[in-house]
């Protein structure tokens, strides 16, 4: 894959853009090298960068369009050559460039006849259009085309069910993928001890290959930052292994629900031996002077845990039994 000999200093790791081309406003190409790398390193970085470039880079897209006059996506508007659906498809294609967080609004307000292109979109200052000539619609009559747009910056793609919005706006399934294609190749030299990594990047113009490279590496570094912390953090992930598998609030939550459902006096009259507890738990509870359900409910989960021989599984079991028998504690009638 190497076509020209490139002299690279063998000392420090360096990157360089060796080739860049712009086939059109919406197709940019760049080729980068990184060297010198030790044997095997190029592959490690290359595949990670390729995947990061393809999967991790954010893009800006129109996610939603709204127009007053349209009855539905498949309707036709007098004086417009395209159907609404085709206009939405054209809007989906429009490439934007922004440093936006979250969403923002934009609009199109054009009077016909004439062609509506991307440059007719009225955008907030921090969003700009990459290719002004992108076609949106062609108006054949002197009519007004007003479309409100919503712009979002995100990653990957979205396919939305339109049902969540009943306000007459139409979702455009956006594709936030500015990198069209990425490739890496490795060239080794010095008897295969050193390697040069080549990265090829094609983008859709909303960011240059160089920017894509920056962003991809930043995203990659962000993902690796946790490992840089010297001390392990107390993530719930690790806690769970030896402390409590139950989220701390559920027990109370459920009990509260139960208490609401039933009157307290009812609880008082129900003894725990009615609730088919396993003997061991039953004995544990008995030893701690818990006789009725009300007594049981007065203890929090931590209290229960403090009892002798009481294990976390038992709490779960109690919960299960309570829920099963308590809600439906009517006498079992034979049919």
């Amino acid at each position: 894959m190497v076509r020209e000999k490139i002299t690279v200093s063998t000392r420090t790791l360096q990157w360089k853009c060796v080739e860049s081309a712009a086939d059109s406003k919406r197709l940019l190409y760049g080729r980068f090298i990184l060297s010198p790398l030790m044997k095997g390193q190029a592959d490690t970085i290359g595949i990670a960068m390729r995947r990061a470039l393809l999967g991790e880079i954010e893009g800006t897209c129109i996610t939603r369009a709204k127009s007053e006059k349209i009855s539905h996506e498949y309707a036709t508007i007098m004086g417009i050559q395209e159907s609404v659906h085709e206009i939405l498809m054209n809007l989906k294609e429009i490439v934007l460039r922004s440093n936006l967080y979250g969403t923002c609004e934009a609009s199109i307000c054009v009077r016909g006849p004439g062609y509506v292109t991307a440059q007719d979109i009225i955008l907030p200052p921090y969003v700009e259009i990459v290719d002004n000539t992108q076609h949106i619609a062609s108006l054949t009559e002197p009519i007004e085309l007003v479309i409100g747009l919503q712009i979002e910056k995100n990653r990957g793609y979205l396919i939305k069910a339109p049902n969540t919005f009943q306000d007459g706006s139409y979702p455009i399934d956006p594709v936030f993928m500015p990198v069209r294609n990425a490739n890496h190749s490795i060239h080794s030299y010095e008897n295969g001890n050193k390697e040069i990594l080549f990265l090829e990047i094609w983008t859709n113009g909303s960011l240059t290959p160089k920017e894509a490279l920056h962003e991809a590496s930043r995203n990659l570094i962000d993902l690796l930052i946790p490992f840089l912390h010297t001390k392990e953090e107390n993530l719930s992930l690790e806690d769970n292994q030896h402390i409590v598998p139950l989220p701390p609030f559920t027990f109370y939550d459920k009990l509260a629900k139960l208490t609401k459902n039933k009157k307290k006096m009812a609880l008082k009259s129900i003894f725990i031996d009615q609730s088919e507890l396993p003997p061991r738990i039953y004995n544990c509870l008995k030893r701690s002077n818990i006789y009725t359900l009300l007594d049981l409910l007065n203890n929090s989960q931590e209290d229960l845990m403090k009892m002798e021989h009481f294990r976390i599984e038992d709490v779960k079991q109690i919960l299960g039994i309570l829920e099963k028998n308590f809600v439906i504690d009517l006498p079992k009638n034979k049919f």
Binding site: M1, R50, R51, L54, G55, N181, A182, N183, H184, E200
Partner: peptide, 14 residues
């Protein structure tokens, strides 16, 4: 599959 997981050709095209 996501496009980065698909097998890709020598020019990077999945």
């Amino acid at each position: 599959l996501p496009r980065q997981d698909m097998p890709y050709l020598q020019d990077g095209r999945p």
